[in-house]
Amino acid sequence: MSYYFTVKDSVKVVQGRVGPKANKRAKFLLDTLVKHLHAFIKEARPTMDEWNYGINFLTRTGQICNEWRQEYILLSDVLGVSMLVESLNHEKMSGETESTVLGPFYIPNAPQYEYGANICLDGKGEPVWVFGRVIDNKGRPIPGAKLEVWQANEDGFYDVQQKGIQPEMNLRGIFHSDEKGRWGFRSAYPRYYPIPFDGPVGDLLVALDRNYNRPAHLHFMVSAPGYEKLITHIFTPDCPWLADDAVFGVKESLIADFKMVDDPARAAELGLPNPFRQVEWNVVMAKA
């Protein structure tokens, strides 16, 4: 093999430049990336203009990122990479709740609420009661589990997309399961929405004539000592975009049953108008 770069030996030459003290995992990851990236270039044979466009696309992707918008996560999402990494790392074997993508709009340190609180601060949308239990795969309760929840509002935007328009921390909250694993809160019935469309990822979807909507959903991040952290959604069953999610995040097991309830006494107890929607969702966690 030549030490000098040729098309034929490009992969071996680049892989051969790694020093003897290289981190083994880093070397494996980079060797694999180089192998497949060079194979892509040799098959696609991009022109210099196309390659420069690709470099500029990645540059613009980084430039549009800020403290509340992560365009690289969005790019990973629409290419199906986020779901593939998530699925490979969290294969469920014993009936645990399936995971899905984090998405670009999670922010830490949301307000902590008590059982039954209302996280819909702008008052928009159809009220819904969301409740369930956190349990293990044997059905045993997991007390003290931390549930972080967030969603878009009735207009199809997250609070961080509408600074000064939506109340701060609208439709976000942190809850903890009680001694029987129970949790519950009031919110708004989720609706579908477009992913951010004004950046390079939006340009990519236009070029590919792809759908840019996400099906209606609620986000959950659930954690408890001794258990794997779970990142998941629950989807509404009547959404028209379930089979065409822009980020490939829908799993059939995550489509929930949002029921209409006509019970004036229960509505008054929950502080909701009657009739109202409710969804019961039990989170089944996997041992760490």
Rank of each mutant, 00 (worst) to 15 (best):
M1T: 11
M1K: 13
S2C: 01
V13W: 05
V14Q: 11
R17Y: 12
V18M: 14
V18P: 02
V18H: 10
G19R: 13
G19Y: 05
N23A: 05
A26N: 12
T32W: 04
A39V: 00
K42I: 02
K42H: 12
R45H: 05
R45Q: 07
R45A: 06
T47E: 07
M48H: 08
D49C: 02
E50T: 09
W51Y: 14
G54C: 14
I55H: 08
I55C: 10
N56H: 13
R60D: 11
T61D: 02
R69I: 06
Q70P: 02
E71L: 06
I73H: 00
L74W: 01
L75K: 15
S76K: 00
L79K: 01
L79R: 03
G80N: 10
G80K: 05
S82W: 02
S82T: 15
M83C: 00
L84I: 09
E86R: 13
S87T: 15
H90F: 08
S94T: 11
S94W: 14
G95Q: 11
G95H: 13
L102V: 13
L102Y: 11
P104Y: 01
Y106Q: 05
P108H: 06
A110S: 07
A110R: 09
P111M: 09
Q112F: 03
I119S: 01
K124V: 04
G125P: 02
G125Y: 00
E126P: 00
P127S: 09
P127K: 07
P127N: 08
V128I: 15
V128W: 00
V128P: 02
V128E: 06
V130P: 01
G132L: 15
K138N: 14
G139P: 13
R140G: 02
P141S: 02
P141I: 09
P143N: 04
G144H: 15
K146D: 01
L147G: 03
L147K: 08
E148C: 10
V149N: 03
V149L: 10
V149R: 01
I165E: 12
P167T: 13
P167V: 15
L171Q: 10
L171I: 12
F175E: 06
K180T: 04
W183D: 01
W183E: 02
G184A: 12
G184H: 03
R186I: 14
R186S: 01
R186M: 12
A188L: 12
Y189M: 14
Y192M: 02
P194E: 15
P200T: 08
P200L: 02
P200V: 08
D203S: 12
L205D: 09
A207H: 05
Y212M: 12
N213A: 06
N213V: 13
M221L: 13
M221E: 04
G226K: 04
Y227N: 13
E228S: 14
I231S: 03
T232F: 01
P240T: 06
P240E: 06
P240G: 07
A243V: 12
D244Y: 03
D245M: 07
D245H: 14
A246L: 06
V247N: 07
F248Q: 09
K251Q: 14
K251A: 08
K251H: 12
K251D: 03
K251F: 11
E252N: 14
E252Y: 12
S253D: 08
L254V: 05
F258M: 06
F258R: 03
V261N: 05
D262W: 14
A265R: 09
R266M: 10
R266E: 10
Q278H: 13
W281R: 03
V283R: 00
V284N: 03
M285G: 08
A286W: 00
